[in-house]
Write a protein that binds this DNA or RNA. Structure first.
Lengths: 206, 206
DNA sequence: GTCTATAGATCGATAGAC
DNA sequence: GTCTATCGATCTATAGAC
């Protein structure tokens, strides 16, 4: 083994640790929030020593931001993958209701996405820049894609597509938030399909 | 001063401490969340000793629940006060848009309400019973009042008033959440009036 | 780079004086 | 009932060996 081989091997090992730390920290932060997560827990979850965590990420706040920026980048990719399937479907009513059904299914049984939203909202007071990163890289692209779609269908005769998109997104987000995140499923039960049908009808029969 | 006078005086003092502790704890919990708030901070904020906090509320979790139940009760009263002003207005379009304008104004510049929502959502994973208390005592009554109103106006010809109410509430909540709580005001700017007009038109021109 | 061991501060909670 | 003082655990972060 040459000297440069050893360098590569060690760099690879170090990068593997970085990944393990990010992964362990992600699990802990999503589960317990920023203040509720200790660096000991992170180290244990990543199966490295606490000193290694510090040598890779400096301090707790920096690690938290790294984890969350990774997650934001992840959600950005997911949003962008919604761009292509502008299906050949012509009927906006079918397309809209199909889009929302898909969105709802993707979120409703996705615990880790709900944990992500919980952290973004819960820590938005103490980490405003994190919240802004979410708005810039997740909410804004989603709004733009939906607005672009609504605008490309003048047959809908929407007076204000931008505001209409907010109605759509708000309806979906609030539904998942109330039923799942806030555990309202059994207290104020409601079928997601009813909400989607109502919203679709409101928009297409305006 | 008789013995019973002294008892009254001391009971009054003790009750004043209870109030001070609840008030100080409320400030701290709303600002820093559950894990981010220490009992030392609470004691300092309430200007009592830490031992007094413990003698009144047992432990931290109990104090947190007491504070949040107080807040939930508060919001419940606010929701209920919306019941009466079923104005003499006949035009649902005017009533709806007026109601939502009022709701938005009440929330949009209300930092403490936003902090409250942040905690409810942020802690809903570790305090599911608190989230359920919110749904039972704030979200559900609001939904019921709005549903009752929509149902009392058959002229609106709504196919599904229950689901329509979710669209309304989701739109309002998401708007405030994105613009204010998540600091999106400058990133995805939008006039609240446009959202209200769009929503009102969708519902009344359906 | 990674570990063990530990410093120094702060945590939740309590004992004991008044 | 309320305080000061303190306990033991846990916290963030680092020093020093390998």
């Amino acid at each position: 083994m040459t000297k440069s081989d050893r360098q590569i091997s060690e760099r690879t090992k170090s990068e593997a640790k970085t990944t393990a730390i990010l992964s362990g920290a992600m699990k802990e932060f999503l589960q317990n929030g920023y203040a509720g997560t200790s660096m000991d827990k992170v180290a244990k979850s990543a199966r490295v020593s606490k000193a290694t965590v510090y040598s890779h990420f400096g301090d707790k706040e920096n690690l938290f931001n790294a984890v969350m920026q990774d997650l934001v980048k992840d959600k950005f990719q997911q949003v962008m993958s919604l761009e292509k399937p502008q299906s050949l479907e012509q009927d906006p009513q079918v397309v809209l209701s199909g889009m929302m059904t898909k969105m709802l299914a993707n979120i409703q049984n996705n615990r880790s996405f709900q944990d992500f939203m919980r952290i973004i909202i819960g820590e938005s007071g103490r980490f405003p820049e994190l919240a802004k990163a979410y708005v810039n890289n997740v909410a804004k692209p989603t709004i733009e894609i939906l607005t672009k779609y609504l605008k490309s269908h003048p047959a809908l005769e929407l007076a204000d597509p931008e505001a209409t998109v907010r109605v759509m997104m708000g309806t979906m987000v609030y539904f998942v938030m109330l039923q799942e995140m806030l555990h309202g499923k059994d207290i104020v039960p409601l079928e997601g399909d009813r909400v989607i049908k109502t919203l679709t009808d409101l928009i297409t029969e305006g």
